[in-house]
Protein backbone atom coordinates (compact mmCIF):
# COMPACT_ATOMS: atom_id res chain seq x y z
CA UNK A 1 0.00 0.00 0.00
CA UNK A 2 1.56 3.24 -1.06
CA UNK A 3 1.53 6.22 1.20
CA UNK A 4 -1.24 8.79 0.77
CA UNK A 5 1.24 11.41 -0.38
CA UNK A 6 2.58 9.16 -3.11
CA UNK A 7 -0.87 8.20 -4.22
CA UNK A 8 -1.71 11.87 -4.34
CA UNK A 9 1.36 12.61 -6.41
CA UNK A 10 0.57 9.79 -8.85
CA UNK A 11 -3.12 10.48 -9.20
CA UNK A 12 -4.44 12.46 -12.09
CA UNK A 13 -7.47 14.41 -10.94
CA UNK A 14 -10.13 14.60 -13.55
CA UNK A 15 -10.12 18.10 -15.03
CA UNK A 16 -13.82 18.50 -14.30
CA UNK A 17 -15.60 21.61 -13.19
CA UNK A 18 -12.71 23.96 -13.58
CA UNK A 19 -15.13 26.80 -13.61
CA UNK A 20 -15.37 29.10 -10.68
CA UNK A 21 -19.15 29.15 -10.90
CA UNK A 22 -19.32 25.55 -9.76
CA UNK A 23 -18.76 26.57 -6.15
CA UNK A 24 -21.71 28.98 -6.34
CA UNK A 25 -24.09 26.29 -7.55
CA UNK A 26 -25.06 24.91 -4.13
CA UNK A 27 -25.76 28.29 -2.53
CA UNK A 28 -27.62 29.37 -5.66
CA UNK A 29 -29.97 26.42 -5.33
CA UNK A 30 -30.54 27.44 -1.72
CA UNK A 31 -31.20 31.03 -2.84
CA UNK A 32 -33.73 30.05 -5.51
CA UNK A 33 -35.52 27.67 -3.13
CA UNK A 34 -35.53 30.31 -0.38
CA UNK A 35 -36.91 33.00 -2.66
CA UNK A 36 -39.50 30.67 -4.17
CA UNK A 37 -40.73 29.63 -0.71
CA UNK A 38 -40.83 33.21 0.52
CA UNK A 39 -42.64 34.60 -2.51
CA UNK A 40 -45.10 31.71 -2.70
CA UNK A 41 -45.90 31.99 0.99
CA UNK A 42 -46.19 35.78 0.83
CA UNK A 43 -48.52 35.73 -2.19
CA UNK A 44 -50.50 32.84 -0.75
CA UNK A 45 -50.98 34.53 2.59
CA UNK A 46 -51.96 37.86 1.01
CA UNK A 47 -54.16 36.59 -1.79
CA UNK A 48 -55.54 33.13 -1.13
CA UNK A 49 -55.37 32.14 2.53
CA UNK A 50 -58.64 32.73 4.33
CA UNK A 51 -59.08 32.29 8.05
CA UNK A 52 -59.30 28.66 9.05
CA UNK A 53 -58.22 27.25 5.69
CA UNK A 54 -55.78 24.37 5.80
CA UNK A 55 -53.49 26.02 3.24
CA UNK A 56 -52.96 22.66 1.64
CA UNK A 57 -51.92 23.76 -1.89
CA UNK A 58 -49.23 25.89 -0.28
CA UNK A 59 -47.72 22.86 1.49
CA UNK A 60 -47.79 20.88 -1.74
CA UNK A 61 -46.00 23.61 -3.63
CA UNK A 62 -43.37 24.00 -0.93
CA UNK A 63 -42.97 20.22 -0.84
CA UNK A 64 -42.31 20.11 -4.58
CA UNK A 65 -39.82 23.02 -4.41
CA UNK A 66 -38.03 21.37 -1.53
CA UNK A 67 -37.72 17.93 -3.12
CA UNK A 68 -36.32 19.48 -6.29
CA UNK A 69 -33.90 21.67 -4.34
CA UNK A 70 -32.68 18.90 -2.06
CA UNK A 71 -32.20 16.45 -4.92
CA UNK A 72 -30.23 19.13 -6.78
CA UNK A 73 -28.11 19.87 -3.73
CA UNK A 74 -27.39 16.20 -3.11
CA UNK A 75 -26.32 15.75 -6.73
CA UNK A 76 -24.01 18.75 -6.48
CA UNK A 77 -22.53 17.56 -3.21
CA UNK A 78 -21.93 14.01 -4.45
CA UNK A 79 -20.29 15.28 -7.62
CA UNK A 80 -18.14 17.71 -5.67
CA UNK A 81 -17.21 15.02 -3.18
CA UNK A 82 -16.10 12.72 -5.97
CA UNK A 83 -14.17 15.52 -7.56
CA UNK A 84 -12.10 16.28 -4.52
CA UNK A 85 -11.68 12.69 -3.32
CA UNK A 86 -10.36 11.60 -6.69
CA UNK A 87 -6.87 10.20 -6.15
CA UNK A 88 -7.37 9.94 -2.39
CA UNK A 89 -5.29 12.92 -1.40
CA UNK A 90 -5.06 13.05 2.39
CA UNK A 91 -5.67 16.79 2.65
CA UNK A 92 -5.32 17.56 -1.01
CA UNK A 93 -6.65 21.07 -0.75
CA UNK A 94 -3.68 22.18 1.31
CA UNK A 95 -1.06 21.27 -1.24
CA UNK A 96 0.30 23.60 -3.80
CA UNK A 97 0.74 21.25 -6.71
CA UNK A 98 -0.44 21.91 -10.23
CA UNK A 99 -3.38 19.52 -10.01
CA UNK A 100 -4.57 20.85 -6.75
CA UNK A 101 -7.09 23.37 -7.99
CA UNK A 102 -9.72 20.85 -8.94
CA UNK A 103 -9.71 19.24 -5.49
CA UNK A 104 -9.82 22.73 -3.99
CA UNK A 105 -12.81 23.85 -6.01
CA UNK A 106 -14.43 20.46 -5.46
CA UNK A 107 -13.80 20.60 -1.74
CA UNK A 108 -15.13 24.13 -1.38
CA UNK A 109 -18.13 23.27 -3.54
CA UNK A 110 -18.73 20.21 -1.37
CA UNK A 111 -18.66 22.24 1.84
CA UNK A 112 -20.92 24.89 0.36
CA UNK A 113 -23.44 22.33 -0.84
CA UNK A 114 -23.55 20.83 2.67
CA UNK A 115 -24.14 24.28 4.13
CA UNK A 116 -26.86 24.86 1.55
CA UNK A 117 -28.55 21.58 2.46
CA UNK A 118 -28.62 22.61 6.11
CA UNK A 119 -29.95 26.08 5.26
CA UNK A 120 -32.60 24.58 2.94
CA UNK A 121 -33.72 22.17 5.65
CA UNK A 122 -34.02 25.16 8.00
CA UNK A 123 -36.47 26.73 5.55
CA UNK A 124 -38.42 23.49 5.15
CA UNK A 125 -38.62 23.14 8.91
CA UNK A 126 -40.46 26.45 9.15
CA UNK A 127 -43.28 25.11 6.97
CA UNK A 128 -43.48 21.98 9.07
CA UNK A 129 -43.61 23.92 12.34
CA UNK A 130 -45.59 27.03 11.41
CA UNK A 131 -48.88 25.91 9.95
CA UNK A 132 -50.68 29.18 9.34
CA UNK A 133 -50.30 32.65 7.90
CA UNK A 134 -51.21 34.39 11.16
Amino acid sequence: MSKPMERHAQSEPRPMRQQLWWIALGPSIWAVHFLACYLTAAIWCEKFASAGSANSPLWWLIGVYSVIALVGLIVVSVMSFRSFRRGDPPVSYDFDDPHERTPFLGFTAYLLSLLSIVATLFTVLVFLLVRSCD
Partner: peptide
Protein backbone atom coordinates in the same frame (compact mmCIF):
# COMPACT_ATOMS: atom_id res chain seq x y z
CA UNK B 1 -47.38 36.56 8.16
CA UNK B 2 -45.98 34.05 10.66
CA UNK B 3 -44.54 31.89 7.89
CA UNK B 4 -42.56 34.79 6.42
CA UNK B 5 -41.16 35.61 9.83
CA UNK B 6 -40.27 31.94 10.34
CA UNK B 7 -38.40 31.68 7.03
CA UNK B 8 -36.24 34.70 7.79
CA UNK B 9 -35.73 33.71 11.40
CA UNK B 10 -34.43 30.32 10.26
CA UNK B 11 -32.08 31.87 7.72
CA UNK B 12 -30.81 34.29 10.38
CA UNK B 13 -29.90 31.30 12.52
Amino acid sequence: PGITIGIFSAASE
